Structure formats: C-alpha cells, structure tokens
Amino acid sequence: MEPGNLTGVSEFLLLGLSEELKLEPFIFGLFLSMCLITVFGNLLIILAVSSDSHLHTPMYFFLSNLSFVDICSTSTTIPKMLLNIQTQSKGITYEGCITQMYFFVLFVMLDIFLLTVMAYDRFVAICHPLNYRVVMNPRLCALLVLVSWILSALDSLLQSLMVLQLSFCTYLEIPHFFCELNQMVQLACSDTFLNDMVTYFVAVLLAGGPFAGILYSYFKIVSSIRGISSAQGKYKAFSTCASHLSVVSLFYCTGLGVYLSSAATHSSHSSATASVMYTVVTPMLNPFIYCLRNKDMERALKKFFGMAGIKGPIVIRLEKCP
C-alpha cells in the first residue's frame, strides 16, 4: 500500500520487541516480573520513608518522590505492552498514543530533575554541612519538587502539542513497545524540521543543563572529600552519595547508550531493545541500590515489617473478644 496523507488517524500499531510469536510468552513473563518488582520495590521505599520519622530528611523526601515517579513511569508503558501480548493485538488508539507519550516524557524529565535536585542536596550536605538544615529547609525542598513538576509538565505539553500538529501516513507501525516521541515523529508525512529543532533544543536545555549541574555538584563534592584528613571521614562522606551516584550513572549511561546504539545500527528494533534499560531496568534497580548497604533504609524496612507483623495478631485477638 502506498503511503498517503491521513487527516484523521484512528490508531497506531506497536510492533513490540520481537516479531517472533514463540518469544511472546517469555517476554510477557519477564516484563510482568520486572513491572511487579519495580512497583513493589519503590512502594516499599515510599512506605518506609513515610513510616520512619528518622527518614524525614530532604534526601529521603526526594528519594520517595523519585520512587513515585519510577512507579508512574513503568505503569505508563508496560501494562499496555502486556495487554497487547495477552490479547494478540498491537493496536493503540491515536489518543492513547499521544497520552502515553505525554506521560512518558513527563516522568522521564521528572527523573532528570529529581536526580539533579538530589545531587544539589548532597552538595550542600557535604560542602556546607553547618548550613545544611538552614539551606535545605522544608519550604525549599517542596519548592524544588514543585518546580520539577512544572517544568516537566510544560516540556511534555510542548512536545505533545508539536506532535498533534503533524499529519501521518497510512504506514502507522511503531517499531517499539510504547509510543516513543522520536518514533512517532519519524512516521509523520508533514515537515518535521520544527519538531526536530524543538526536541534538540529541549534536550540540550532541560537534559544537558541538569547533567552539567550534577557534574559540577560532584566536582565540588570530590574536592571537599579530598580535603578531609581522616580516611573514615572520607568514607562516611562518600557513602552518603554513593547510592545517588550509582543511580545517576545507570540512568544516564543507559539513556546515552540507547541513542548511541540507535545511531550506530540504524535499527529501530535494536533501539527498542536498548531502551528497555532506562525505561524498565533502571527504575527496577533503584530500590535495590538505595536499600542495599543503606543502614537507615534497612532499619526503616525492618521497623515497617515489624509493625505490620505486630498489627496482625492484635487484630485477631480483638476479633475473639466477646
């Protein structure tokens, strides 16, 4: 069929990660498992932070927000993919595709901003420890999260409105497991020069800018740590930001790897497979990174499960009372 311009697009086709039907049960089980681990792992972090007063600090406040965003990000893409595999259908409505793209861009940008805010928090804690409580006060923490949401929502709205201005051809197959922004733009029949320029400008401003801020924060952190005389003091200072540094490295390295691999291979399916790393694997690993070798989180989780275990028998005894 020759491609032709359509004024009203009804639906797109998500081709997924593989065209082989034999692999679909394996892919379904794998992604269902990763989705459940991501949701329950990040939910545990939120519950642990909210239930333990010792974790009511800026660092864990930002961490709980990051966990919430990771849950939302995974819930935006994976359920539709699992539904398509289960129903043997690849279709997604035009409105559903735009909605999925909007929320995916929103939560990815929120990840970037929250990781930047957390880097600033570690910068203040290590480089200006005496002023930490004054600088990172609850009002500023709430303001930083609010600004992150506003900027992310505006960027996502701009990208979605730009896509809504495009007209699409009859070839509406997206070689991905979700409605990815670049893949949708590539399907357009109309001129996409303005979309490409806006995407590159936003990437430099809203992704490159925060990344530069993270690099500057850690440059100052490393300089401060080097100035500490005792080895124990250096280890203690570095351990407070080791988890965050691991998450930042994982997020940016996998995201950068996706675009480098897609540019090198020019294969859409290779890009879709590589994007699994930062869209699914990174949110899944965040709870493990922040919980392992983190004594505060371990204590909070033990306390949380201990409280849950204690409440059970109490309820049973009350029910037996006359």
Rank of each mutant, 00 (worst) to 15 (best):
residue 115 L to S: 04
residue 117 V to M: 13
residue 117 V to E: 11
residue 117 V to L: 13
residue 118 M to R: 10
residue 118 M to P: 04
residue 118 M to V: 07
residue 119 A to S: 15
residue 119 A to F: 11
residue 120 Y to L: 12
residue 120 Y to M: 09
residue 121 D to C: 15
residue 121 D to S: 12
residue 121 D to E: 15
residue 122 R to Y: 07
residue 122 R to T: 03
residue 123 F to L: 15
residue 123 F to W: 15
residue 123 F to D: 03
residue 124 V to N: 01
residue 124 V to G: 04
residue 124 V to H: 05
residue 125 A to V: 12
residue 126 I to Q: 08
residue 127 C to K: 11
residue 127 C to N: 09
residue 127 C to R: 12
residue 127 C to E: 06
residue 127 C to H: 09
residue 127 C to G: 05
residue 128 H to L: 12
residue 129 P to I: 03
residue 131 N to Q: 14
residue 131 N to T: 07
residue 132 Y to H: 12
residue 132 Y to A: 09
residue 132 Y to N: 07
residue 132 Y to S: 05
residue 133 R to F: 14
residue 133 R to H: 14
residue 133 R to P: 00
residue 133 R to M: 12
residue 134 V to S: 09
residue 135 V to P: 04
residue 135 V to H: 09
residue 135 V to F: 15
residue 135 V to R: 11
residue 135 V to G: 04
residue 135 V to D: 03
residue 135 V to A: 08
residue 135 V to C: 05
residue 136 M to Q: 10
residue 137 N to L: 11
residue 138 P to H: 11
residue 138 P to R: 07
residue 139 R to N: 11
residue 139 R to P: 00
residue 139 R to L: 14
residue 139 R to G: 04
residue 139 R to Y: 14
residue 140 L to V: 12
residue 140 L to T: 04
residue 140 L to I: 11
residue 140 L to G: 03
residue 141 C to Y: 04
residue 142 A to V: 09
residue 142 A to L: 14
residue 142 A to Q: 13
residue 142 A to D: 06
residue 143 L to E: 04
residue 143 L to N: 07
residue 143 L to R: 10
residue 144 L to D: 03
residue 144 L to P: 00
residue 145 V to S: 12
residue 145 V to H: 10
residue 145 V to R: 08
residue 146 L to Y: 12
residue 146 L to D: 03
residue 147 V to K: 02
residue 147 V to F: 13
residue 148 S to A: 15
residue 148 S to K: 07
residue 148 S to F: 13
residue 150 I to Y: 09
residue 150 I to V: 15
residue 150 I to P: 08
residue 151 L to T: 08
residue 151 L to M: 11
residue 151 L to Y: 10
residue 152 S to P: 10
residue 154 L to E: 05
residue 154 L to F: 14
residue 154 L to S: 07
residue 155 D to W: 14
residue 155 D to T: 12
residue 155 D to V: 13
residue 155 D to M: 12
residue 155 D to C: 14
residue 156 S to G: 02
residue 157 L to S: 10
residue 157 L to C: 08
residue 158 L to F: 13
residue 159 Q to G: 00
residue 160 S to H: 06
residue 161 L to H: 04
residue 163 V to L: 14
residue 164 L to W: 00
residue 165 Q to D: 11
residue 165 Q to M: 08
residue 166 L to Q: 07
residue 166 L to A: 03
residue 167 S to K: 13
residue 168 F to W: 00
residue 168 F to C: 01
residue 168 F to S: 02
residue 168 F to T: 00
residue 170 T to Y: 06
residue 171 Y to T: 00
residue 171 Y to K: 10
residue 171 Y to F: 10
residue 172 L to P: 01
residue 172 L to W: 03
residue 173 E to G: 01
residue 173 E to Y: 05
residue 175 P to L: 02
residue 176 H to L: 08
residue 178 F to Q: 02
residue 179 C to L: 01
residue 179 C to N: 02
residue 180 E to C: 08
residue 181 L to T: 06
residue 181 L to P: 01
residue 184 M to D: 01
residue 184 M to E: 02
residue 184 M to L: 15
residue 184 M to V: 07
residue 184 M to R: 01
residue 185 V to W: 05
residue 188 A to D: 04
residue 188 A to V: 03
residue 188 A to G: 05
residue 189 C to Q: 10
residue 189 C to D: 06
residue 189 C to G: 14
residue 190 S to Y: 10
residue 191 D to P: 01
residue 191 D to N: 15
